[in-house]
Design a protein around this nucleic acid. Structure first.
Length: 103
DNA sequence: TCCATGACCGACT
DNA sequence: AAGTCGGCCATGG
């Protein structure tokens, strides 16, 4: 495990229950060069991880795992279970659920 | 060691 | 409104 990944995971673990953060935001807080690395870090997570990766969305407030099989559905279910609401376009109201980082 | 690839973002045309 | 481009980290062959 690299230090860069650890920083990303540390930030994601801080996202409060029922809140969401964008890749760009996580990259910024984790002090990572580009959001790309965040995505790659999350893609390397295992199923039994303690990192709430489902609380991370892209800049539009939608789930980016569209291509990834099954994962998108899992993410949506977990978010809805936490009280996060999706609109008609399967998009999340960032102004209502976005996490702006540690206080 | 070099090359390609991957959950992305923001600015520009 | 939609497509292109640069950014730049880690992994596998």
């Amino acid at each position: 495990m690299s230090a860069t990944f650890e920083r990303v995971y540390a930030v994601v673990r801080q996202i409060p229950h029922g809140r969401v953060a964008t890749y760009g935001r996580v990259a910024e807080l984790a002090d990572v060069a580009t959001p790309r690395v965040v995505g790659f870090a999350l893609s390397a997570l295992e199923d039994d991880t303690d990192v709430p990766w489902h609380r991370v969305l892209n800049a539009k407030g939608t789930i980016s795992l569209g291509r990834r099989d099954g994962a998108a559905t899992t993410q949506r279910e977990r978010l809805e279970a936490e009280g996060v609401v999706f609109d008609a376009n399967s998009r999340i109201d960032l102004s209502a659920h976005a996490w702006s980082g540690p206080a």
